[in-house]
Structures are given as structure tokens and as C-alpha cells.
């Protein structure tokens, strides 16, 4: 028997096994699909958040809020001091009036709050753009602390601090997805193994006859291995389709930003979907091999 004859036999028998035991096969396929779906969704979410963080990191600025009574001359002096640092790539002076305008644009519903306080309701500030790669983090930290010690500087707000927190959140989300995915995938492997074991039990007499007449282990076990792989593939495809569907639902809800701008929906990659299907097939294969070790 040639390899292709054997493969054709395996596929035919595995297909028949799947159809004959369709109830348990569906159970295995759905378990694999569910585990991959959960893992995949968490992966997309964490990836989306990480992408947002990366985008924001490029735009991240340090804002030095100045005391309201700081004179324009003094503001200019501080600005020049700030600009002298080699890692500063730009400084924008925001006057109280400009700050109020921005607030009104961003939060129009509550713009009255600021308008009623007059022009000096919000303090002037310096928005400092940095090139963090030009400086060692401890040096930058020292510099920020020195900036905060200027008597005219009321507060220094570093965007990068909360970006780091969001980054940690994304990592936790990824870890949670990984743990959940692995646990569920373990359950899927176990389910596949049980289904294959059941199938092998149903066909035990036929297996015995095949052994009796001189069937090799490769020939006897092949259909069961392929059955596991097919279950995994079907589960993977189902999961990829569900992920794609969920993605399209999310995409339909907003143009590019979701969850208050926290989550950037990037185009769904084919590579990820292929990986989901491949992991499904691998889970099916593992389940089949585990069951064959014990049952056949």
C-alpha cells in the first residue's frame, strides 16, 4: 500500500467515523472551537490594547502645569530651559485661554463650568514631547523631578505612567487569555481523546480482525489519528469563523476605536486565523495520540 493509498484510506475511514459518531464528534469539535475562540478573543483584545499603547507611546507627552500667576517672561524662560535638554523634541505653550478652549471642545456638555470661572479657570501649561530613546530612564526621571521643583510648576503629568499601567493591564489580559486558552484547550484535548477512545471501543472487533489478518499499527491507527486531526481542524475553522464574525460585529459598532478609545481595532490578520486552525489541528492530533496510547 502506497502512502497516498493509505492517506486516502485514513481520510475515508476517519470521515465515516465522524459521520457515524456525529454526536460525540460535534462535542469534540465544539469544545475545541470554544477553547480556541476564548483564547483567540483574549489575544485580539490584548493585542488591540497593546497596539493602542504603542500608538499612544509615540504621542506621549509630559505636561508641566504652571501656576496661574506665572508671567509670560517666566514661562518663556522655563520653556527655554526645557528645550535645552537633548531628549526634548518639542515644547508647546498652552495659555489659560487655550486650555479653556480645548476643554470646551473636548467636553462641550460641561464647558459652562470653565466658562463661568473666567479666562484663568485653567492654568497655563507646557506640553513637552520627548524622545525617550535618547535618554536613560533614571536620567529622565531625575530631569522630571527637577522640572517639578520649579516654583512656577504646579504639577508635572507624565502620560507614560498611565501608559505603563495600561500596558500591564494588556499583559494581564494576555496572560489570562493564555491561561484560559490552555485550560480550555486541555479540556478539548481530553474530550477529543475520549471521543477517539469511544470510537476505537466501538470498532474494537474490527481492529482485532485487522490485527489478526496482518494489518500494521500504522494502518490500524491511522484513521483514528486523522479523525482527531479532522476534529481539531473543524474546531479550528469554526473558531476562526466565530472570531471573524465577532470581529465584524465589533468593527460595525465603531470606526476604529472601541472601549472609550482603549481598544484599537486593527485589521484581523489571516495569519492569526491560520494559527487558530493549526492549533486546533494540533490539539486534535494530541488528543488522538493520547487515546491511541491507552486504548488501541
Amino acid at each position: 500500500m502506497t502512502f497516498f493509498q493509505a492517506l486516502s484510506h485514513f481520510l475515508r475511514e476517519a470521515g465515516l467515523n465522524l459521520v457515524r459518531g456525529w454526536r460525540v464528534s460535534i462535542l469534540a469539535v465544539v469544545t475545541i472551537a470554544a477553547s480556541l475562540y476564548v483564547g483567540g478573543v483574549f489575544l485580539i483584545l490584548s493585542h488591540g490594547i497593546s497596539s493602542s499603547v504603542e500608538n499612544w507611546r509615540g504621542e506621549a507627552r509630559v505636561v508641566a502645569y504652571l501656576e496661574a500667576e506665572t508671567t509670560a517672561v517666566r514661562v518663556e524662560e522655563i520653556r527655554r530651559r526645557v528645550e535645552s535638554a537633548s531628549w526634548v523634541i518639542g515644547v508647546e505653550t498652552i495659555s489659560s485661554a487655550e486650555a479653556s478652549d480645548r476643554f470646551s471642545e473636548t467636553f462641550p456638555e460641561i464647558s459652562d463650568l470653565v466658562a463661568s470661572q473666567g479666562e484663568a479657570a485653567l492654568p497655563p501649561s507646557l506640553e513637552i514631547s520627548l524622545a525617550p530613546d535618547r535618554v536613560e530612564p533614571p536620567v529622565l526621571q531625575d530631569w522630571l523631578e527637577q522640572l517639578a521643583e520649579f516654583p512656577e510648576v504646579a504639577m508635572v503629568d507624565d502620560d507614560r505612567r498611565w501608559l505603563a499601567q495600561v500596558d500591564v493591564f494588556a499583559s494581564l489580559l494576555r496572560l489570562l487569555g493564555l491561561v484560559l486558552g490552555v485550560v480550555l484547550l486541555g479540556a478539548a484535548v481530553f474530550t477529543t481523546a475520549t471521543v477517539i477512545r469511544l470510537t476505537a471501543h466501538v470498532y474494537r472487533r474490527e481492529i482485532a480482525v485487522q490485527r489478526l489478518v496482518g494489518g500494521t499499527e500504522f494502518y490500524i491507527r491511522g484513521p483514528f489519528v486523522i479523525e482527531g486531526v479532522l476534529q481539531g481542524l473543524l474546531g479550528g475553522i469554526l473558531s476562526a469563523m466565530a472570531i471573524g464574525f465577532s470581529f465584524s460585529l465589533l468593527a460595525a459598532r465603531g470606526p476604529a476605536q472601541l472601549a472609550g478609545g482603549l481598544f484599537a481595532l486593527e485589521p484581523l490578520s489571516w495569519r492569526l486565523l491560520v494559527q487558530v486552525v493549526a492549533v486546533g489541528a494540533a490539539a486534535g492530533l494530541l488528543g488522538a495520540l493520547l487515546s491511541l496510547r491507552r486504548e488501541i
Binding site: M1, T2, Q5, A6, V209, Q210, G214, G215, Y219
Partner: peptide
Amino acid sequence: TYLPRILG
């Protein structure tokens, strides 16, 4: 014909 099938 189990054996002939096994033999391809």
C-alpha cells in the same frame, strides 16, 4: 478482503 485492502 481485509488483507487485500490492507495491501492496497
